[in-house]
């Protein structure tokens, strides 16, 4: 028994060493393979994005001209010609109006959640409802706008109906980013203001709101960027018009995403060209707003 035990032990040792080396080799190659896979995943995501941006940038830049900004879209039964002035002015009006509605509501609501009642029951309800509101599909929101504002209240297809529907979409976003930015203001700021005898109103307007301003503005800019790319809320609330907006009620307005949606499906080349230019303008608008928001965050980090 003891004669066979010794060589067995030695064999086992060298065998185990080889096995460990083999398994290390195997584990290292698995490690390498998984790293390659994650790189492939990144490429699979970025390739379409870069293709998309380059395609619209190239086509848009070659097709854009001064008529894009100076002429209205001329829509006949046979052709689509002219520029995009009505869609550009309509988009600007819709974004301005919806911001005018959603920014005060969202910022004030955020102040309530962060400063007045961070742990209150009503705050919990508001947070929950805002989360649900943020998840309502845009077309459902568009339908609600159509049924309530356009039909029931009788506003017709109009800038105000479109803007109010968009602001329901922007509101929860601004609310939550405002709350988050205010929460990030150090508690010592509040204590210092209170110790100096400041009232709550004073403390909020002079201290916490000022400290949280970069974060709040970032949220507002990003929500404007998202809203400017929305289509489904506006299809049945803002309608579409080939003219520049003149009134807030009972008169439909044009907007860039409508041009992309509808003109891309028409068959004449001139309509495709307008859709491409509109896509280019939308991308430029969205990307520059994103960059602006990012710069603001960086400035805030530097102090």
């Amino acid at each position: 028994m003891s004669e066979t035990a010794e060589p067995l032990w030695q064999d086992d040792f060298s065998d185990r060493r080889k096995r460990i080396q083999d398994s290390l080799l195997r584990r290292r190659s698995i490690d390498r393979v998984t790293k390659v896979f994650t790189v492939l995943a990144v490429i699979a995501l970025l390739y379409p994005l870069i293709d998309m941006i380059l395609m619209f940038a190239y086509k848009g830049a070659t097709l854009i001209s001064t008529t894009t900004f100076t002429q209205l879209t001329a829509l006949n039964s046979a052709t689509v010609t002219g520029g995009l002035q009505n869609a550009i002015s309509g988009t600007v009006l819709l974004i301005a109006l919806s911001s005018a509605i959603s920014v005060p509501l969202g910022v004030m609501g955020g102040i309530y959640l962060a400063e007045f009642s961070p742990r209150g029951r009503f705050s919990g309800i508001i947070r929950f409802v805002a989360d649900i509101l943020a998840a309502v599909p845009s077309i459902v929101l568009g339908y609600a706008g159509l049924l309530f504002l356009v039909l029931y209240l009788g506003w017709g297809f109009s800038a105000l109906a479109g803007a109010l529907t968009l602001s329901v979409f922007m509101f929860p976003y601004i609310l939550r980013t405002t709350e988050l930015s205010l929460k990030n203001v150090p508690q010592s700021y509040r204590e210092a203001a209170m110790a100096l005898g400041s009232s709550k109103t004073n403390m909020i307007s002079r201290v916490t709101l000022r400290a949280a301003l970069p974060g709040i503005s970032t949220g507002i800019i990003l929500s404007m960027s998202i809203a400017s790319g929305e289509t489904a809320q506006l299809l049945y609330t803002a309608g579409y018009s080939g003219f520049n907006p003149t009134a807030l009620l009972h008169s439909p307005v044009g907007y860039l995403t409508y041009v992309v949606y509808v003109f891309s499906q028409l068959s004449f080349p001139t309509s495709q060209n307008l859709a491409l230019v509109a896509s280019f303008l939308l991308l430029v608008f969205v990307i520059s707003l994103n960059v602006a928001a990012r710069l603001l965050v960086r400035r805030m980090a530097k102090g």
Binding site: P104, L105, G106, V107, M108, G109, G110, I111, Y112, L113, E115, F116, S117, F122, S123, I125, I126, V129, A130, I132, L133, V136, V140, L141, Y143, A144, L147, F148, Y152, V168, F171, P172, L175, S199, K200, T201, N202, I204
Partner: peptide
Amino acid sequence: SKKADALLRYTAALCGGTSLIFIFLILGTT
């Protein structure tokens, strides 16, 4: 200033509470 504080508090609560009105209108009309 106490009055101003109370005013701000209720205005802020009202603004946050519009989320309830929005969700009610969306659910109600659909």
